[in-house]
């Protein structure tokens, strides 16, 4: 159902560059692309749909809906927001540099994502050194395999 458009206000400092908003938007208005070591999320300036999917999906509460008059102010005050507007369109984008896996050197996550995950784990568990830190999921599997295989290979004495 269409209604009066609301304007998207993104808190760029809060946004960690995860994929929640892009995958939650039922209309695909928020777009995600990855080229090389860069992840880009493109937001529309406004949205005319009657849903709050992206707002509720965002783990950092970085997305807010603003009314038109409110938004003009936000835009004026925050130069950052204006800077990120893609020239020639009303969309604005957010770029993140991806961290590369320390083993396979493939980019796999943003620094802010990794920080958030480690903070969440550290809050429950006091040990802060993990062998899998800085490894991409595929290399974590390899690390586990190598450890487990070592014991069997020792017994088999090939």
């Amino acid at each position: 159902m269409n209604k009066k458009p609301v304007y998207l206000e993104i808190d760029f400092d809060k946004c960690i560059g995860c994929r929640a908003c892009t995958s939650s938007c039922p209309n695909g208005f928020i777009r995600l692309s990855e080229t090389g070591r860069q992840r880009t999320i493109v937001f529309p300036e406004s949205c005319g749909m009657d849903c709050q999917a992206c707002v509720s999906a965002c783990p950092e509460d970085a997305i807010r809906f603003a009314r038109a008059q409110e938004y003009e102010e936000v835009r004026k005050n925050k130069e950052k927001q204006a800077e990120r507007v893609i020239s020639g369109s009303s969309e604005f984008e957010l770029c993140f540099e991806l961290v590369v896996c320390r083993k396979c050197k493939r980019p796999f996550a943003t620094e802010k994502e990794l920080k958030r995950v480690l903070e969440a784990i550290d809050a429950e568990i006091s040990s802060s050194e993990y062998a899998w830190k800085g490894l991409c999921p595929s290399c974590r599997r390899d690390l586990l395999r190598e450890r487990e295989a070592r014991a069997v290979l020792r017994v088999r004495k090939f």
Binding site: A20, P59, A109, E113, V117, R140, L144
Partner: peptide, 21 residues
């Protein structure tokens, strides 16, 4: 689930994946 992918980064064994649509 909001498909943010943070669980993928948290699993020490790489046992979670995001299915690419």
């Amino acid at each position: 689930c909001s498909d943010c992918g943070l669980c993928v980064l948290a699993c020490p064994f790489g046992a979670i994946e995001l299915k690419k649509a």
